[in-house]
């Protein structure tokens, strides 16, 4: 909860909760893991900028970056990061029907249709980007 709202809330009794409260149940661990995927999102964004800068500078710096990216430890780490970003994608798209209320002709579009639409968009984006990078 945003602490800014608290001054207007009546005082309540609150039991002190240990810092690692979220390790107690699998659902809490999943929740905190999902929230922490934001670190991976920022990391991948920075890495993409590094990649773009290397490509712009020329083939030598691009090959140097590729050399670093293909080291076994780096690859293992990035495969783990990839799994984390996939976790972000799946949890994010699964929440879309709850966040979006779309009405067509006064009728609410069913949650399943919104979910399918989002997964379809993901597949389309993935194919389009891969096509641009790998070529036909």
């Amino acid at each position: 909860m945003n602490p800014d709202y608290r001054p207007y809330h009546p005082k309540w009794f609150r039991r002190r909760v240990p810092i690692f409260w979220w390790l107690r149940q699998a659902a809490y661990v999943k929740f905190i893991s999902r929230e922490l995927t934001c670190l991976l999102v920022a990391y991948v964004a920075i890495l993409l900028l590094v990649f773009v800068a290397a490509v712009d500078r020329g083939e030598a710096s691009y090959l140097a970056l590729v050399g670093w990216l293909s080291q076994p430890m780096v690859v293992a780490f990035h495969v783990a990061v990839l799994l984390g970003t996939l976790f972000h994608t799946v949890t994010w798209l699964n929440l879309a029907p709850m966040a979006l209320v779309v009405k067509v002709g006064g009728r609410r579009v069913p949650a399943r249709a919104i979910l399918l639409g989002h997964y379809f968009a993901w597949v389309a984006c993935t194919i389009a980007v891969a096509w641009a990078l790998v070529g036909p």
């Binding site: 999102v41 990216l69 990035h78 990839l82 994608t89 994010w92 993935t126």
Partner: peptide, 21 residues
Amino acid sequence: GMMAALFLPVLLGVLLVAAPM
């Protein structure tokens, strides 16, 4: 969240993992 969900897996997977390997 939406942009990251749609574009980051393919960019990371293709550019930063599969192609260098």
